[in-house]
Design a binder for these strands. Sequence first.
DNA 1: CAATCTAATGAATCACGTT
DNA 2: TAACGTGATTCATTAGATT
Lengths: 376, 376
Amino acid sequence: MGAVQTIARPRAAADDSATLPLDTILTADCIAAMKALPAASVDMIFADPPYNLQLGGELFRPDGTHVDAVTDDWDKFDSLKHYDAFTRAWLAEAHRTLKPNGTIWVIGSYHNIFRVGATVQDLGFWILNDIVWRKSNPMPNFRGTRFTNAHETLIWASKGEKAKYTFNYRAMKTLNDELQMRSDWEFPICGGQERLKKDGHKVHPTQKPEALLYRILLACTKPGDVVLDPFFGTGTTGAVAKRLGRHWIGIERERGYVAAATQRIEAALPLDESAVATMQSPRQQPKVAFGTLVENDYLTPGAILTDAKRRYRVTVRADGSLVSECGAVGSIHKLGAALQGAPACNGWTFWHYEADGAGLRPIDALRQTWLLATQP
Amino acid sequence: MGAVQTIARPRAAADDSATLPLDTILTADCIAAMKALPAASVDMIFADPPYNLQLGGELFRPDGTHVDAVTDDWDKFDSLKHYDAFTRAWLAEAHRTLKPNGTIWVIGSYHNIFRVGATVQDLGFWILNDIVWRKSNPMPNFRGTRFTNAHETLIWASKGEKAKYTFNYRAMKTLNDELQMRSDWEFPICGGQERLKKDGHKVHPTQKPEALLYRILLACTKPGDVVLDPFFGTGTTGAVAKRLGRHWIGIERERGYVAAATQRIEAALPLDESAVATMQSPRQQPKVAFGTLVENDYLTPGAILTDAKRRYRVTVRADGSLVSECGAVGSIHKLGAALQGAPACNGWTFWHYEADGAGLRPIDALRQTWLLATQP
DNA sequence: CAATCTAATGAATCACGTT
DNA sequence: TAACGTGATTCATTAGATT
């Protein structure tokens, strides 16, 4: 195994160029279309297959509005067994069409990614990383029944253990303020102007953000490489590939998606440098929840907090809530406000703890200590 | 399916208490020891199984025993096959020993988590979330060949699709500064004083941070619940369970780890009961009928209620039903839903009354006053 | 015109007890 | 067991309307 960056590999070989349908969309079933492609002919594959969500009944937000779920036929499978067979079939073709030193990316959620990942390994692919796409603005869990499903998972794999795959290490490090790019990436979900719409409705229920593809193509392909996307949808992969000077091949069955993708890619301009800056710099804001300090034993449940003048006295509980002597409970902010009869309160500066021999210190001091210990 | 917090479930039943080795470490092979436990006897399982293969060519037989130095005889498909058999064997026992409404947590990396996740599904577990542990201080990729592997993945699953699992939604929300807890969690890796060492060397190569177990146990168990850890290692699960007032059972084969865990857990201090308490969901409060408030003159029949924006106006009747100006009649919930044309409505927060000099207040405030006055 | 309010929406396996 | 009544439940962002 190893990352090769220095060796200039040949572009698509002459015989391939003749047969490869470069920079076009094949309107066809993905497995059939892949079978028609020559073996060992593409440099990278990006695949966003159906997730097999298995959703139940209708879902409403607390304000009574209806949640527009993914109910399309292409996401329905009779059973896990059928889904596995489908997964194995298209991944086998992916393995065949990939060049020896090519890599594959597959995105999914907990509904399908474990089955996809196991099949990837079964077929002899060598997993290089799993990448977590952290959504900065995920849909909440409206019923309060689980943790907010705030991420999706990507698998990056080479064709085999010894393959000399492309990884543009320096580009990734530069992009990440001279720190190694990590396996957790934060992007917003696709919305606003970028989201394709027709008659006011989204064209595709699961359009991926261009920023995600941008980072993937920049990291794992070279200019002129051929990128295959067997689940092309509205063509995010094609649009980004064109912008970055990579060739692309899309496979998509639904004509509506093909039409939208065609128009979109025609409008895409190669190397839009201005967009690069906004899409590349991973932003992260250190935000600390009071509960984090409790979890990490900066404050032990049962600890006593008071305000600076010791008028109010409360006890810290296991979940980071506070309980007053009169039995009122709430977060550091809410209980501080309630006890004072104020509309709001900054709990970080209001509440204090007794530091050993140093008198009262605001709990904000603990937050600063935490940030110093955990931020690079 | 759904999160149940209101039903006080029995602790380990009498017959289980007799046979369950509560708060002890079983020095044994995990599959054999689990087979000896009664069916449907534990509330939660936390498992940190071996990560398999690839790293150093480790191999496991289906019974979990280690295969030494045979790398030439085993290709990676054999290795995967045997790891799958081992995974299936211990997960099947986990399924058997779990109570009908219990849940399981499994942690892993990209080397094994896809195989584990697929087997979890194959055995009938119902995945509730996958959780990403983002390491604030991961080990860098020294050779610059991949993305920094900066996270591990946890799977949280119930015993089946319809199970009524425990999820302490309010406690998690409080812990996260009044925002829903997401599926991506950030913790430092285990180090410093927390990391167990002997003769200057770490006792266990993959000791998990207590903060991770703290959040898991707080989220998905109740005080007094029984937590089983079949890969106990140096006993992080036991130490945190003891602190939080949960029972624990550990299974560990290596005597060195057992000794370290025993000493560690003995030193752990349980929090007192009030500190273990967490924020409770309204689901756990006793139900109050709106009519009760009318009967007790918190609201007089004939009183006027409106929504917050005063778009709808209704009159309270003697039996606690409401009547609108257009003559529609119904409960606080039904009429609120009907007037808005919504599928459902929480009348307690939708309807407001005019409080003396204090403007509109939701009728839920009256319910809270009633609860305070009548609950011990 | 700037500031502010309102409405819409996103790959979601999203309730429970009683009759 | 299916139907029904009660009532618990949301965050970040964008776009458009209003002040």
